[in-house]
């Protein structure tokens, strides 16, 4: 494991990220812009699938056409993320927040595959104005929750250098509080007239 980390910490990506003085902030900016594009695409698509905002449903077909944007935004963040990881591999590998971030991303990836292979064709065939099946709503809600988790864990990387259970509980409490607030706001904003 350590041989592997040593070798990647000396590759060209690591040297670029560490040794070029503007590289790290430049990559961080790309990572944040990619984050916003990713969340934007996911929000519009997932909230459409969940059914927030009737009666003014966004048509499903253009919403599904946001998937390339989501994939491009994720690719930007995967590539910039690999630069960060190579630049400081020991820090990230043994960081609790980073480990949780990777776990959330893996589950979100599996969830995305389920959406693509299990729900996409059904949703694409859905006539305008018709409500989506419950299974698709659950996949969409899980996607939003998991990506919120990925963002929160990513942002907590500098604050969780040591691993302990109390920290984990504190983060999860913060996570639930923030997401609860968002859900509460969204439910309050949901129009009641059909």
């Amino acid at each position: 494991m350590n041989n592997f980390l040593d070798s990647i910490s000396e590759n060209w990506m690591a040297h670029f990220a560490r040794d070029t003085f503007w590289a790290w902030p430049f990559l961080e900016n790309l990572h944040f812009i990619g984050l916003s594009a990713l969340v934007g695409g996911l929000l519009v698509l997932d909230l459409r699938v969940i059914g927030i905002g009737p009666p003014k449903y966004i048509p499903m077909k253009p919403a599904l056409k946001l998937i390339p944007l989501i994939i491009i935004a994720f690719s930007i963040n995967l590539i910039t993320g690999i630069f960060f990881f190579c630049g400081d591999p020991y820090r990230y590998t043994y960081n609790l927040a980073f480990q949780l971030k990777v776990v959330f991303m893996a589950i979100a990836g599996a969830n995305a595959l389920w959406f693509w292979f299990g729900e996409h064709a059904k949703l694409n065939a859905l006539p305008d104005g018709v409500d989506t099946p419950m299974g698709a709503k659950i996949v969409a809600a899980a996607s939003l929750l998991l990506w919120a988790g990925v963002i929160i864990m990513g942002r907590l990387i500098p604050y969780l250098e040591g691993e302990d259970l109390l920290s984990l509980i504190a983060i999860l409490a913060g996570f639930v509080a923030v997401f609860g607030l968002i859900c509460w706001v969204l439910i309050r904003l949901r129009p009641t007239t059909a």
Binding site: L35, L38, V39, L43, A148, I151, I152, R155
Partner: peptide, 11 residues
């Protein structure tokens, strides 16, 4: 702040 940024700027 990061989650809110993604939500607001993303849309």
């Amino acid at each position: 702040h990061a989650v809110g940024m993604g939500t607001a700027v993303g849309v």
